[in-house]
Structures are given as C-alpha cells and as structure tokens.
Design a protein around this nucleic acid. Structure first.
Lengths: 242, 242
DNA sequence: CGCGGTGTTGATCGTAATCAACGGCTGTGG
DNA sequence: CCACAGCCGTTGATTACGATCAACACCGCG
C-alpha cells in the first residue's frame, strides 16, 4: 500500500530523504540507496532562524550541509566593516567548501532555514570512496563559478538601476514558488532586507530603496508589502538588466 | 648521464612535459607516466600572440588547454559593449569549463601565450577514467571560485584607489619572475593595458591612469616604463588595498 | 614625417553616497 | 489601552567620486 511507483527502492531510503530535493537535484542524486542509508546515519536536520550565523570567515568548519529550505547568504567583510554578499544559496544547494580547513566566507541564514548537516570527515570519506559524488559537487561548483562571474559583470559594469533589476530577476527566476517556468509573471517574497540587497549589489540601502520605488513608479513591479514583490512581465524586467 | 634524480621515471614521460609546470602544480600532477604518454598523443602546443581570441562566449568549445606561459583574460560583455574581465589565468592554470557545451566567457591572450591544447573528448574520457584528475580539476575550480568571490568584494565595495592597489598586489603576488615569496619588494611587467585593467576593476582607463600616477607620486610604486612596475615594499601596497 | 595606438592630465558633469528627517510596524511596559 | 523605543524603509538635500569630454605627449612604424 505504501509503495511509490516512481522509485521501487523508495522503501530502502531514509524517510527524511524521500521528499528532499537534494535526493534528485542536489548532491544526494549521486548516491545509491545503500550509500544514502549509510550517510543518513551521520546527518542531522537543523532549523535556523533568520540572522543565525552558520559558518564564520576564517573559522574552522566541522561540517558541511545541504540547504533544504530557505536562503543562505555568503558574505565577506573588509577590516573597516564594508560588507559584500558573494553568493546566495537556495535549496537544494550544497553548503561549504569541500576539503577546505576553514571557511573563506561567512554563511548566514537570510530567512528561516532548514539544513541537513553532515560532519566534515563523514562526507569527505564518502567523496573519496565515490567519484560520482565528487562529480556532482564539481558540477555545482562550476555552476557557482558561472554565477559568480555573471555577478562580477553586474558589480563592475552595471548602473544602480540595472543592478536592482538584475537582483529582482535573479530572485524571480530562482525561488518562484509556483515554479511555472514559462509563466509570464512572478510573485515572491524578498528573502533579503534592503540593506542586504545593497550589500549584494555594492550599493547603499538608500539607493536600493530609490531604485525599487522607481521600478514601481514605472509599473515594472508592484510592491504589495515591504518584502512582497510582483512582476507582471518578466521580460520587461529583463530588459532593464542592461 | 641523462637521468634526473628527482623523478626516476623521467625518461618515460613526454619530452614536452618534463619542464612543464602543469606536470607538478597543474592538472597533470594527477597522471602517472603511462597516462601522461597516452594524453600527450592528443595534445598540441600552440603559441598565440597577445590579443588572440582563444574561445568565444556562447560558442561551442572543442578543446581544453593548459596555460604554459603568459596570461589569459576571461571576459564577459553586455549587449551595448560594456566589458568586464571575470578572471585571469596564469601558468599552469587549466583553461576551459569542464563538461560545458559552450563557453560562458570569452578567453583572450593578454600577453603572448603558449597553450597545451587537448581535444574535448580526449580529456573528458581521461577524467571519466581517472577520478584523481577530476579531483585536481575540482581543486582548481574551488580556487577560482575563491578568487572570484574575493574579487566581488573588490568590485562591489572598494574605492578606485583601493581597486588599483588590489590589482597591483594581485599581479605582484601571481607572476613575480624572481618568485622569492618572502622578498620585501617586487618588479614585474603588467600583462594588461590600462584599458584592460579598467575592465578588470570596473573603472575607466582614465581613472586607472590617475590612480597609478597617484601611487607613483606617493612613492608606493615606481613606473619605469609604461608596462614596468616596481614595488619597493609589498606591505605598504597591501595597506592600500582596503 | 605624419599617423595610429596607448597613456597622461585637465575641466566639467552626473550618479550614487552621505547626511538628515520622517513614517510605519512591532514589541514592551506603564 | 496607550506611550514609546527600536528597527526598517522611504524620501529629500547636498556632496563627492569617478565618468565623460577633451587636449596633448610619447612611441613605434610605414
């Protein structure tokens, strides 16, 4: 009665993994059910509130994690406090720099977040034993590198207006709950405050606020609550990205 | 007579590989002499003049390469022509995005460059057969990601003066020919024109020129020829990086 | 010798930063 | 219940940094 026709081995895999996106789209897709069971003996699901620090820059890391729900921001700071967000991780992204002694970035929960934590050693042993897992993680790393480079263009060469439009476009295409890829518009909650968005775009929060107001005045977006944004026509937004 | 005590199998490896940095510090360090011989049957050393385009954005790539000498710049452009350099590759870096159908960036020789080209299929077969090779490439990809994120801070949060100082510091620590890591100063040739530096830093070439003049006036650097820079005290330069 | 390419320096302009005031929301305590 | 503090966001006034426009110096080269 309790069988799932999509996966004949479903009964063999851990309960928590069955509905987890990492099982299909994330790193766990590289594991067979036996490996998944073995790994799950070391994993722990933890919930963090928005604002919690998950890993600190130049602090030793003792565990890796998969993002199961929510958004994690990766930041770097200069001595005088200037801050830059260098990456955003969404479910089912892998969190942590494989093989690194210490983190090169600070990881912080941008929204409420559920993580599936794995002790450092356990995952590294599994990676050493299973090249397919490293291959998966390589694919994600390459994707992150592509995203970082794409963002360097935004930081270095776009105007404030284009930066804010690019940010909204990024969010709209990454965490639309309806997930209907060919829908013309999107509605979503911003996972970041105005100050966070500024740190992501290399702007001040006042400039972010002004540009959002401008996009609203120009009817490109509607802001129905401080964190709630509706994009009627995604293509019109994209045109503003430079 | 012709033996090299550092490597008893030296006579087994291809002539061209013996003096190649990639053999030790680059991806070829993951290969044994038999694999190296097999791979070398597919490789071809090619020399490119400064300015040559090595791979184009959104064009299919048919080969990978190792940089043996010189500097390669990776760039992205917006429709209206605004350009951003998103990475610099030095010997013995690997060139190309593994498994990708087409390049996400344009690769261009910044100086005269020697490449060791490998056909796409040949390398991918070798990667599939040898997990240690993928591991090596993973390490380089992670390093590139770290560098990209470090650079995002520079692009997003530093002033023009700090950006130029950061660029000089990067070059000084990456391609000093004397390679004496604990020397107090450095002398080097800039591998990029003022315009290229501007595209790397998200500035105009005029601003780059002004900031270089300012650093010279402040005696942080000496400019003995247009491309020739001498840094007497690396630490003083680092202090200007923000 | 004139020309194109590259780099420097000066004058002016414009965009985003900074400084400042205020509005709305939430939670707390009288 | 209301008063008030604290936080976040918006908007306005002014400033400043880097872009833009412009002139010229330098160098190799036909």
């Amino acid at each position: 009665m309790d069988t799932d026709r999509k996966d004949i081995h479903n009964s063999d895999i851990p309960v928590l993994c069955r509905s987890c996106d990492a099982r299909h789209k994330g790193m766990c897709g590289a594991l067979d059910s036996a490996e998944l069971v073995a790994l799950s003996r070391h994993t722990r699901i933890v919930r963090h509130a928005a604002g919690d620090e998950l890993a600190a820059e130049s602090e030793p890391t003792e565990s890796y994690a998969n993002v199961m729900r929510g958004v994690v921001k990766l930041t770097k700071v200069l001595e005088d406090g200037r801050q830059q967000i260098v990456g955003l991780q969404f479910a089912p992204d892998f969190l942590g720099r494989l093989f690194a002694r210490e983190s090169a970035v600070t990881a912080e929960a941008a929204s409420e977040v559920d993580l599936c934590r794995v002790p450092k050693g356990a995952l590294e042993r599994l990676v050493a034993a299973n090249p397919r897992l490293e291959h998966r993680l390589m694919q994600q790393t390459l994707r992150e590198l592509d995203e970082a480079r794409e963002w360097m263009v935004t930081l270095g060469r776009k105007t404030a207006a284009e930066k804010v439009a690019s940010f909204l476009y990024l969010i709209a295409t990454h965490l639309d709950p309806s997930a209907d890829a060919n829908a013309k518009g999107r509605k979503f909650d911003l996972p970041l405050t105005r100050g966070d968005i500024a740190d992501f775009l290399g702007l001040t929060l006042e400039t972010v606020s002004r540009q959002l107001s401008r996009l609203r005045a120009d009817k490109v977006i509607a802001i129905t609550a401080v964190t709630r944004v509706e994009v009627a026509d995604l293509e019109r937004l994209r045109k503003r990205c430079g």
